[in-house]
């Protein structure tokens, strides 16, 4: 229970943002990216507390407004756990400062988009006039040495990955949202990811550009590489076409939207969902429990749109993961085994040092993906275990 004196003095609240979305209000503390959905009456309570009213005054107001007595002690405990209330001696957080906003406004301005449109149109026109510029798997092999191809494509992809993620981050900063960049995984894919939880705190119509900024960047990069290839010859042209192909491949990877790619966030934003993935997984668990006559788990909270979309998204999850499992069993594992066997065969057959090095590099690149994905999965598991043991 809240101490009596706590109820009769104003709380020291950190800077909070409020976004009214009709049936729910999204409230959060932007400097630590802690956001929640509240019913409108809960948001009104929090707003009054953050404006300096004492909890006792707010509870009285609530009773007069809604004719019910609110469990203020429970509410205060929850908002304290969320980090909304400044602890004794803790400095009150102001609205966070966001850098690079000027650059972001320029890069996502109408004139900039006109330039991007011209570049893409130019690349399409150049490809129509010279079909050898079109994406083809042959474009990967711009050099006779597989060693050169492997290392160039592997190392050279990182600037393009950073450009994609940088576009997400900058378009967020244009709206005053901070973000952070890190390595993560989706199933066995290694990904660079931009965490931007604050996106839920801006109106829905403004969320589309930060979500689409990565894909737009991939298209512009592909266009620039294609136009450069059109204007050059030899190895430069070859490398440009190879990177244009791999950039398009990364764009296609976004179609695995059950892995919560950018396309997933686009779909949930269009549909107005707030927790689709978790609600869908929960729906599958409950269906399975019912089928096996086990105890049905409690329903995961979500918005009306989540429950509606979960009816089809839950099946997409099943189909998506099943397809991935089939591809792992029929393609990924056999290919990995094949490459490892190939390395040993070449060593056994007394192949040249170049041939053996060639195979070893390819094998290391392929195996490294699974080793890194496994290490990231282990890190997630350890982090989750630690969080459960120390829920503070």
């Amino acid at each position: 229970m809240a101490a009596a004196d706590t109820l009769h003095r104003p709380l020291r609240m950190h800077h909070l943002t409020f976004l009214d979305e009709g049936e729910e209000v999204t409230v959060g503390r932007p400097d630590i990216d802690s956001y929640i959905h509240l019913p409108p009456d809960g948001a009104a309570l929090l707003r009054r507390l953050s404006q300096g009213s004492t909890p006792a005054e707010v509870a009285e107001w609530y009773h007069a407004e809604y004719g019910e007595t609110v469990d203020m002690a429970d509410f205060l405990e929850a908002i304290t756990d969320l980090g909304f209330v400044a602890a004794e001696g803790e400095e009150v957080a102001a609205a966070p400062r966001v850098k690079w906003q000027g650059l972001a406004r320029v890069l996502f301005s109408k004139p900039a988009f006109a330039v991007y449109g011209l570049l893409i149109a130019g690349a399409v026109a150049a490809t129509v006039m010279d079909p050898t510029l079109a994406p083809s798997y042959r474009n990967s092999f711009f050099h006779p040495s597989l060693l050169v191809v492997s290392l160039t494509l592997f190392i050279g992809q990182f600037p393009f990955l950073i450009l994609h993620e940088g576009a997400h981050a900058l378009s967020g900063r244009r709206l005053g949202l901070n973000s952070s960049l890190r390595f993560s995984r989706r199933l066995y894919f290694i990904v660079l990811e931009t965490a931007m939880d604050g996106l839920v705190s801006v109106p829905r119509a403004k969320r589309f550009l930060p979500i689409l900024a990565g894909a737009i960047t991939d298209l512009v990069v592909t266009a620039v590489l294609t136009l450069t290839a059109a204007a050059t010859t030899g190895i430069v042209r070859g490398i440009c076409l190879a990177f244009a192909l791999t950039t398009l491949m990364r764009l296609l990877w976004q179609c695995y939207f059950f892995l919560r790619t950018d396309l997933y966030y686009l779909v949930v934003t269009v549909l107005g969902c707030t927790n689709l993935h978790a609600v869908s997984r929960n729906l599958l668990h409950r269906r399975l429990a019912k089928l096996l006559r086990l105890k049905t788990p409690p329903t995961t909270p979500g918005a009306e749109a989540d429950y509606k979309a979960a009816r089809w998204y839950s099946w997409l999850l099943v189909v998506g993961y099943a397809a991935m499992l089939v591809s792992v069993i029929t393609v990924v594992i056999p290919s990995t085994v094949y490459v490892v066997v190939e390395v040993f065969d070449r060593i056994d057959a007394g192949a040249s040092a170049g041939m053996i090095a060639d195979s070893i590099v390819v094998a290391v690149l392929i195996l490294s993906q699974f080793v890194i994905a496994g290490a990231l999965a282990l890190r997630e598991r350890l982090r989750n275990t630690t969080t459960l043991e120390n829920p503070s």
């Binding site: 809960g42 969320l82 791999t246 990877w253």
Partner: peptide
């Protein structure tokens, strides 16, 4: 006594896949 329901928002993680060959 009325309890206020509080629900954490979904995390937003915008990604790009790194790929070996």
């Amino acid at each position: 006594m009325k309890k206020i329901s509080i629900r954490k928002t979904e995390t937003v993680r915008l990604t790009s896949a790194a790929q070996p060959l």
